[in-house]
Nucleic acid binder design. Structure first.
Length: 745
DNA sequence: CAAAGATCGCTTTTT
DNA sequence: GCGATCTTTG
């Protein structure tokens, strides 16, 4: 049996406070590397062992499967056994589970399939064709985006107004798209969330059942919740349950996907009794790294100021290098890593190279190849996105759900079996006229052949071909009803359609494609005792990031987005140029710029020991070259944190020394044209200030009203004031930003 | 139906 | 400038 002290030893006071908090509304703002996962897992274990909450009263949601897995295994370690009945998973997986259970109350069956982005796009195309809309003028991809954006705001077609023709098109396609989803017995990712909200609103008794069941709801990465997710949480909280949410506004980087970090503030507003706990001790990085990160992020408004600190010492200065072009930038990165690995100073797995856009990985890959350095690339070509993998998944989905016409049209002529586009549309048209799905018609044709009432609807040999295909589908479905293992079905499909013959054309690529199919088959074996439904759900909801091979010795190449949640001893952040980071599409929108800044913040805070930042004077883009100016964010990193510490530097860069360039960044407005020697530039932006709000004086804030100053610290040329407000309690403020005024007694 | 030719479009991408 | 995707053509 685990004792109280076992649990809490090794937690710092703030972590302990969070873990042991009385049930209620608890908001933990956890800076990077502050032990967020530790707090969540300990909290779950603490609830079970100390508050004796049965595990099936606990719901813990994450955003990635990986995070869910990590949390699950750590909780198991803490408890010494698997907690029975605990619901732990991603928002989407949890919602899918609820929807399948409650299908009786829903406009679709419990065997619904989950459409990914590609499937959504095909459905949009279908809608466009049905509505006779020019597909050149109105791109399926952009309409799909518009629909998803609307859904992220929980707007139904009828909630939208159209002020332009384009908006009218979006609206109509959205409407039809949604009907098609239902006809296909399918939901998209957004539906998984929205339909749960709809369900909870339409059926209070269902909502009540879930909210009663989950006495405690825990949420990871709370800053990334979107409107629907926040609504789900609010509905679950209606029965007075306890909520424990953990997040960091500064790491919100999925705004474009509907995430709204302001939900953190909404939480405080909606639950005024909420207890707010800041985790500010960082166990990951050196103080230098943290100082740089803070200097970057402090320019953002609408956030809870945090004092990240570390016991890890100052550490090495940040190395900033600018190169003549993006090719040299890539070479510098690869060469530096290669030399340090060769000198046995670094291990490959300690190193990550980060960039804003996937396109930047190409030059890096070439440079690594040239340096004969193996690497691990995250993202890019997705396993589940590959054609051959999607083909087989489409077969499986069609077997599972005969109404899935997106899958049907995908595979009905793959490999080619003489059923062309014309025949397919005849089939669809015919089926729809009879209010049947094409799958049903095929199935009957397969069963009865020429005897079928449908047979005469098809001319020539088409009826035979359709019947053959339908008969295959029937025999596969039989395999399921007979309870055969999934592997057997998988093999049967491949044999019946002779897929190897079709896909492996003896070329290198064909061979690889077949390998991918076999790889999918290997995953299927894991589901032999669980069945097709769980296999499909897993395929729909698990991304490639989750299947990322761990433990390779090679450095990792990844986007800044993909880097969230990871840490590396050595981090290279490349492309610190205006237009790249911040990205050109973000320049005119302050909210987007703030997100770009957070992206850099996330990147910086991945580094444990060493941080390299690189940029280039020109980069190849769309053919030609483009001149670049250093990222505006570089200005914000104090020159005192940065230097050229004589680390192995390619000789190619013996151009205007980096030192001079550093001065340029710090004295941004007056670039020095001279080749002077390096002097750390004085911190001009923030001259030392006087203490204006000493402890024990009363102050007024325009939002929070009056309060008492508890503590005031002068540092980094600004005054940080801790105030206990009469109404909202403790807040930490930066004097120069907060517009405080002293209240005369 | 496949191969060659034309055209598009180009951030990020937890699920 | 490149790659994916759609269109045309034999």
């Amino acid at each position: 049996m685990i004792t109280n002290t076992d649990f809490l030893s090794g937690l710092n006071p703030q972590q302990k406070q969070a873990v042991t908090a009385q049930p209620g509304h608890i908001l933990v703002l956890a800076g990077p590397g502050s032990g967020k996962t530790r707090v969540l897992t300990h909290r779950i274990a603490y609830l079970i062992t100390q508050f004796h909450l049965p595990p099936d009263n606990i719901l813990a949601v994450t955003f990635t499967n990986k995070a869910a897995r990590v949390m699950e295994s750590r909780v198991e370690d803490l408890l010494g056994e698997k907690p029975r009945g605990l619901w732990l998973g991603t928002f989407h997986a949890i919602c899918a589970r609820i929807l399948r259970r409650e299908a009786d109350h829903l406009p679709f069956g419990s065997n619904f399939v989950i459409y990914d982005e590609d499937d959504q796009q095909s459905l949009v195309k279908t809608a466009l064709r049905e509505l006779n809309i020019d597909e050149k003028m109105y791109k399926a991809a952009s309409i799909r985006g518009a629909i998803s954006a609307a859904k992220n705001n929980m707007q139904k077609p009828e909630d939208l107004t159209s002020r332009t023709y384009r908006e009218e098109v979006n609206l109509r396609v959205y409407q039809r798209y949604q009907e098609l989803l239902r006809a296909n017995n399918a939901v998209d990712f957004d539906d998984l969330l929205n339909e749960v909200v709809n369900l909870f609103e339409a059926k209070p008794e269902v909502r009540e059942r879930y909210s009663r069941r989950f006495g405690e709801v825990l949420v990871d990465e709370f800053q990334d919740t979107n409107t629907a997710q926040y609504q789900i949480l609010r509905h679950l909280a209606l029965s007075g349950n306890s909520m424990f949410v953990v997040g960091d506004e500064d790491q919100s980087i999925y705004r474009w996907r509907g995430a709204d970090y302001r939900n953190v503030q909404s939480f405080e507003r909606d639950y005024p009794d909420c207890q707010k706990i800041l985790l500010e001790q960082n166990y990951r990085s050196t103080q230098t790294v943290l100082d740089a990160a803070r200097a970057v992020i402090d320019h953002n408004i609408n956030r809870t100021p945090k004092h990240l600190f570390s016991d890890n010492g100052k550490g090495e200065k940040i190395i900033l290098n600018d190169l003549m072009d993006d090719k040299m930038e890539a070479d510098f990165v690869a060469d530096t890593i290669q030399k340090n690995i060769k000198a046995k100073l670094w291990k490959g797995s300690d190193v990550a190279v980060m960039y804003r856009t996937n396109a930047q990985s190409r030059l890096l890959e070439e440079a690594f190849l040239k340096a004969r350095l193996p690497y691990r690339l995250v993202g890019a070509q997705r396993f589940y996105g590959r054609r051959e993998v999607k083909d087989i998944i489409a077969y499986l989905r069609l077997i599972y759900n005969p109404s899935d016409e997106v899958s049907l049209t995908r595979v009905i002529n793959v490999p080619t079996r003489g059923i062309g586009d014309k025949s397919v549309s005849t089939l669809l048209q015919y089926a729809h006229n009879l209010k049947l799905s094409a799958g049903d018609v095929l199935s009957e044709l397969g069963k009865l052949g020429q005897q079928s009432q449908h047979f005469s609807a098809f001319s020539g040999s088409i009826g035979i071909k359709l019947a053959d295909f339908g008969s295959m589908l029937n025999s596969w479905r039989e395999s399921i009803t007979k309870g055969f293992p999934l592997t057997r079905l998988f093999q049967q499909i491949l044999d019946d359609i002779r897929y190897e013959e079709y896909i492996d054309d003896a070329s290198e690529e064909g061979h690889q494609r077949w390998e991918n199919v076999l790889e999918l088959g290997k995953i299927a074996t894991e589901f032999d005792d669980r069945g097709l439904d769980e296999f499909l759900e897993r395929l729909a909801l698990v991304s490639d990031q989750d299947t990322l091979a761990e433990g390779t010795e090679a450095p990792t190449l990844l986007t800044l987005h993909a880097a969230k949640g990871l840490e590396f001893a050595v981090v290279f952040i490349t492309g610190l140029d205006d237009g790249v980071l911040p990205h050109s599409r973000s320049l005119d929108d302050p909210e987007e710029m703030a997100e770009e800044r957070r992206l850099l913040y996330v990147g910086i805070t991945r580094a444990k020991e060493r941080l390299y930042i690189t940029r280039a004077d020109r980069r190849s883009s769309y053919g030609g070259y483009e001149n670049c100016t250093p990222s505006r964010f570089l200005r914000d990193i104090p020159a005192t944190l940065v230097m050229n510490s004589g680390i192995i530097m390619p000789t190619r860069t013996s151009r205007p020394s980096m030192e001079r360039r550093m001065e340029n960044y710090s004295n941004w407005s007056t670039p020095s044209p001279t080749y002077g020697s390096f002097k750390p530039a004085p911190r001009q932006s923030k001259p030392p200030v006087e203490q204006r709000f000493p402890a024990n004086c009363r102050v007024r804030h325009e939002v929070w009203g009056e309060g008492l100053v508890v503590k005031s610290v002068l540092e980094d040329g600004d005054e940080t004031v801790d105030v206990f407000f009469d109404t909202v309690g403790f807040k930490r403020l930066i004097a120069s930003l907060a517009k405080l005024e002293i209240v005369k007694k």
